[in-house]
Amino acid sequence: MSISVQNISKSYKNIPALQNITLEVNEGELFGLIGPDGAGKTTLFRLLTTLLLPNEGSATVANYDILKQVKEIRNAVGYMPGKFSLYQDLTISENLAFFATIFGTTIEENYDLIEDIYVQIEPFKNRKAGALSGGMKQKLALCCALIHKPKVLFLDEPTTGVDPVSRKEFWEMLKRLKQKGITILVSTPYMDEATLCDRIALIQEGKILKIDTPQGIVDAYQKTIYEVASNQMHLLIEDLKHFPSYYSVFAFGEFVHYIDLNNFFDSETLRNYLKAKGHQSIILQKTTPTIEDIFMDL
């Protein structure tokens, strides 16, 4: 077991940030922590990287206790905080050399680990980190977090504020790192990234709602989801909310996702209801649930 969290709670001045969290991450797993802002993701990261002490509970990272074996954990983990936190006034290569040195290693020693990431930013290695684009900053931060060959990698919202192309690249890099046997715990507010993880935990208001593989979570979902569209999208949500057997409705891209209380309800009834309300060119069809649908339902 690479990360094992047992009943951990943490509160800031009586405001609970995490409540009774239990989760386990296997070795070499890419584990996603999915939840909205303020769900407690960063707090969990800070606890596991020994930056915070829990109020209750215990946890081990790479088989080291987070309370007693702080020094061992710091040697064994790489942490990339959500906010870019390298030296903006040092260049790419200076930043990398700095972190290599304080971990008591050299860039050459673990170069194979960072090679395919580093070659992408190497052309700019004499540029100051503060002058890099968002995507390049993330790559540099990842290199710095990897330079001491950690067993466990903590990535706190690594793709927030990064363009879609760089996001995709970034997840491909994570997959390659996983193949090298590094356990990765990554948090993200983007539901579409959840499917890229081996397993995910849905977290909200400091509580874990579900832990499973993305497919498992989708499969376990019982309700039928309809995607609905019409010529009057702004009225559609209001009208759907007044449908007698309405369960939930929310905007989803170009459609509105609608769930009925009755799992076997006849969609024609709804179509007629909408027609009566004056909607035209109605689209009403079943769709496969996504992580986002499930999250909205929780």
Partner: peptide
Amino acid sequence: ELGTLEQINVTPI
């Protein structure tokens, strides 16, 4: 302020 201390603090320094 810059957050670099957080990065330093997870190192074994």
